[in-house]
Design a protein around this nucleic acid. Structure first.
Lengths: 208, 208
DNA sequence: TTGCGTTGTAATCATCCGATTACCTAATTC
DNA sequence: GAATTAGGTAATCGGATGATTACAACGCAA
């Protein structure tokens, strides 16, 4: 019922910092960079709004840190997978690693928000750099061909979109959704579905 | 050098309406829903800001119209492709149609912006509906299997991300970008590259 | 020309948001 | 235990933004 961390009075700034970063990741992931406010982040972290901006300088720098941390997690998860059991093909190991990452929607959602802001002079640059870092990892460290890497990334982007769209919210009401999700997350469907329950006020889909 | 349409004095409201919708598509596509302002749209369309909101009621309704029009264009392009030359496989026809759509970045970018806003109570619903409409078209009208449709959509999502990220801006400076783009747009690379010149102030990528 | 509906804008409003300032209080040090 | 640093917040500011209102100019019909 209670939150995981419920400290009273003072806390080390470093601890508070990761709390705020976690909150920012969730908020930015749901609302996007421009749609989120520093006050939303502050409330989610249980601190005051001025404290958030003073810790990170600007809203933009806060988002860049969130983005950077998301990329770090992906890269390290992939590196672990690459160093894993050589019996199973590397593409499958990486796929499993990616699947594990979906447990925290915000990681992948923040990446997607950055990816579609390529026209932004500062976020766009970081998005391109981060994306190409991942591509290079697939090519050079995982030993994939350009076509294999492209195909792997394509599947990942579709998974990201499906998560961002909250398609799981319509799992119960639309058989086509079930079918598609089954194709996007082969074998893992039931597992991943448990981690993505529909929002409380899930509106039934209306056709236009 | 001059814009396509340069009418003086009065114009029929319907004509003006499509001008504003075109402008809105570009602006929303670049900045996203929350990042764009009605004033940016107004300036791009050459009208006053109050006129924009009076024509469409609210900024949200304007975005929904942009989104709806984008979906309509995709659906009709796909239906044309499905009705095309039966000699060439339908997946290839659809791929060509999708490639043609990339000529207007904003169509696909607005879709992506909507797709990552699934948590929004009104945009999210439209995003899911529109996406599933496309999926159903692939399954029922194009006769694809669930796996074929999923694979097709995956490739499309990667293409959208690559366009949104403005990866073409780094084509000249990064060989890995060239390689990846070659894998994402097989055969069509040179063709599509002509339609996506880098921004004037293209910042060279910095590694973090 | 007068009248009137359509097309459009200038001015303005209320709100929100990121950022700044000034201040407060719990620890830590000496 | 006084002094000092570190961890915070309340209050507020200036600018941006979506929306409203009131008004102006054009064009057409009688």
């Amino acid at each position: 019922m209670s939150s995981v961390i419920e400290k009273k009075s003072r806390m080390a700034a470093d601890e508070r910092r990761v709390l705020v970063l976690d909150a920012a990741s969730t908020v930015f992931g749901n609302a996007g960079y421009a749609g989120a406010t520093t006050d939303m982040v502050a409330r989610a972290a249980g601190v005051s709004q001025p404290y958030v901006v003073r810790m990170f300088g600007t809203k933009e720098q806060l988002f860049l840190e969130v983005l950077h941390r998301a990329l770090e997690r992906i890269m390290s998860a992939f590196r672990e997978a690459i160093a894993g059991d050589p019996e199973v093909p590397v593409a499958r190991r990486l796929g499993n690693a990616y699947f594990t990452l979906t447990a925290d929607r915000s990681i992948l959602l923040n990446l997607m928000h950055a990816f579609v802001l390529g026209a932004d002079p500062v976020i766009g640059v970081q998005a391109r750099c981060g994306f190409m870092d991942v591509y290079r990892l697939l090519r050079e460290e995982a030993g994939m061909s350009a076509e294999e890497a492209s195909e792997f990334l394509a599947g990942g982007m579709l998974a990201n979109v499906v998560l961002g769209m909250r398609l799981f919210d319509d799992y119960a009401t639309d058989p086509a959704v079930r079918e598609l999700l089954g194709a996007v997350f082969p074998e893992k469907l039931e597992l991943i579905r448990k981690g993505h329950p529909p929002l409380p006020a899930s509106t039934p889909p209306r056709v236009t």
